[in-house]
Nucleic acid binder design. Structure first.
Lengths: 142, 142
DNA sequence: CAAAATTTAATTGTGTACAATTTAAAATAT
DNA sequence: ATATTTTAAATTGTACACAATTAAATTTTG
């Protein structure tokens, strides 16, 4: 088949589309493992940074997760009411809201430890392919 | 550094996170080129399948784009009111809503033809890397 | 053929996601 | 020291995204 004028606009020729679809697909694959923990995917990656750092400002979380306050503020309020984190104004700088992890939030880590292996076992990639994919994706994010 | 118990839960060790972040990033890179066309990213990929097929049911669009009616119905109504498509119940099978492209929608293709090249020029991948990435992503989508 | 099952969209409800604006606090610049 | 600018979150508004339900039409089945 000879190249056609609008080939560049065919869905099958896009890189963006499999990227968009694969991202949604992977979030979807997490769901059965996160539901029992009472976490959404975005809450899960938020807990990941909280498990590592214990205490962060909203904008620090935003930098790690590439999310803005319009997404984070309502979600963090929900997570607070679910008992996973605390939200307190910083005394050093009243503009900042410090997010800290509660004992309950900390405890959830023990159950979450199983999640990564469970998910990767249902993603159809070898370890090598996964590493390759990860490094290509990181070039896009900069 | 010796491996730690919770390494599997570190954000930096996840494949899912760069996938999630890269997908959002790429949609973001489309914005400056789609805004002048009056299209969102999701509307853009919808137009892609409409430019190719002229006429599709809602669920056929959903299959191509991996989207369900909860997403599509309101978006298609918006695209109809923007004059890009028509929504009509099928006479052959009254359950189906046939989406067809309008002359206006068809005309938009001429402006959109520039978009793919513009976007790929601001994504930091060689052609070879892009093809490799695409094929890895397609393994996830199945 | 009539009842049951399936299919197709639409709807409802919840949860992101981000642009743009607002508000308050802190930093800086005169 | 006060006015200006900058910064940090919160808020507002728009647009997905999907699970679950509903409603209507069609197909299948006894």
């Amino acid at each position: 088949m000879k190249p056609q004028k609008y080939d560049a606009l065919k869905l099958e020729n896009q890189l963006c589309f499999p990227l968009y679809a694969a991202a949604k697909e992977v979030v979807h694959r997490y769901k059965p493992f996160l539901d029992p923990l009472g976490l959404t995917y975005t809450q899960y990656i938020t807990m990941m940074v909280m498990w590592e750092h214990k205490e962060l400002t909203v904008s620090q979380i935003g930098e790690y997760l590439h999310l803005d306050t319009g997404t984070l503020t309502p979600m963090l309020k929900k997570m607070e009411s679910n008992g996973l984190i605390l939200r307190q104004r910083s005394k050093r700088d009243e503009r900042e809201t410090i997010i800290s992890i509660t004992p309950e939030g900390k405890a959830l880590r023990k159950q979450a430890i199983e999640v990564p292996a469970k998910v990767s076992s249902c993603v159809n990639l070898t370890l090598d392919e996964a590493l390759q994919l990860k490094s290509l994706l990181e070039k896009i994010i900069i």
